[in-house]
């Protein structure tokens, strides 16, 4: 295996086009080096990109632009992220321990496409788009089209994920990310759920976005639940109905962390808590 240090986007793209599928991008390495250590991957080359400064810039505006190399720790501590994307900030603070948060990057979390990626649900409810750059040009893709399957994305081997664009929380809205794990920290989500809610003046739900992780092959939005919530008020019957829709839409599996039926059973309660929490925040 060879090791390259890319100091600019152009250098990285050159190496990617040269190595194709045999080249592996290395940022913080919290997933990649563990996979390499277990012998699960055997790339021909590691292309280290942490030296590319343009990839760790955060800028706010109509859409927040976050560089792919931004670490979880930076996301959790950044004032602009806390204001415009509170669910993302809180999810970043729930990924692993400090060690993982300091090294692991936003782009890495997305490109590894773990079904349990904590950052994915908050990104999905913020209508995240990723920018993929290659020598032949640049394209933007909605995050829900980027996730193809468990650990599989739409990124071509010659492409570099450079920026994630997000819609900041509009006025009169709130969002949160709730994670169910066995411990308070350092755990992979048994179920993770993000809700972004906007209320009309009369207290009816004007718009609802709901996304989950760890209950399907990829993190995903749940349009059935969003439709069930929209137009209703935050009251028991409506929440129960939306909870049923969520349990039905989920396709969880049994694994070491929990069974499929357990995951289905906890989803409605988690949704209820998240919606109530958003409602209370908007009311404040």
């Amino acid at each position: 295996m060879r090791f390259y240090r890319a100091h600019s986007i152009d250098e990285a793209l050159e190496l990617l086009s040269e190595w194709g599928e045999d080249g592996c991008l290395l940022a913080g390495g919290t997933d990649l080096m563990a996979q390499y250590g277990r012998g699960e991957i055997a790339p021909g080359a590691l292309i280290h990109i942490e030296g590319i400064e343009q990839l760790s810039i955060i800028s706010s505006g109509t859409r927040t632009q976050i560089g792919a190399l931004t670490s979880h720790r930076e996301l959790a501590a950044d004032a602009e992220i806390a204001a415009g994307h509170p669910a993302l900030a809180s999810a970043a603070g729930l990924v692993g321990g400090w060690q993982t948060q300091a090294a692991g990057s936003l782009g890495g979390n997305i490109c590894n496409a773990s079904p349990a990626a904590d950052l994915a649900p908050p990104l999905l409810v913020a209508d995240a788009h990723v920018t993929l750059t290659s020598k032949s040009g640049e394209r933007r893709l909605a995050l829900n089209e980027f996730f193809m399957d468990r650990r599989a994305t739409a990124r071509r081997p010659d492409e570099l994920l450079t920026v994630i664009g997000l819609e900041p929380l509009p006025p009169g809205s709130a969002e949160c990310y709730l994670k169910l794990g066995r411990r308070g920290a350092m755990d992979v989500a048994i179920v993770g759920l993000a809700v972004r809610l906007s209320l009309a003046g009369d207290g009816a739900i004007k718009a609802a976005r709901v996304a989950v992780c760890s209950v399907a092959a990829t993190p995903r939005r749940v349009p059935e639940v969003e439709a069930a919530l929209t137009g209703t008020r935050i009251e028991p019957d409506a929440l129960a109905e939306a909870g049923r829709a969520l349990a039905e839409a989920a396709s969880p599996i049994d694994d070491a962390r929990g069974t499929a039926s357990y995951r289905r059973r906890v989803l409605p309660g988690l949704l209820e808590r998240a919606v109530m929490q958003c409602g209370e925040e908007i009311g404040r």
Partner: peptide, 16 residues
């Protein structure tokens, strides 16, 4: 500690 931040050295690339 790498530049003052705690990091798990068992999954930290040395070349990086």
């Amino acid at each position: 500690l790498i530049d003052g931040a705690p990091v798990a050295s068992c999954i930290q690339s040395a070349a990086a």
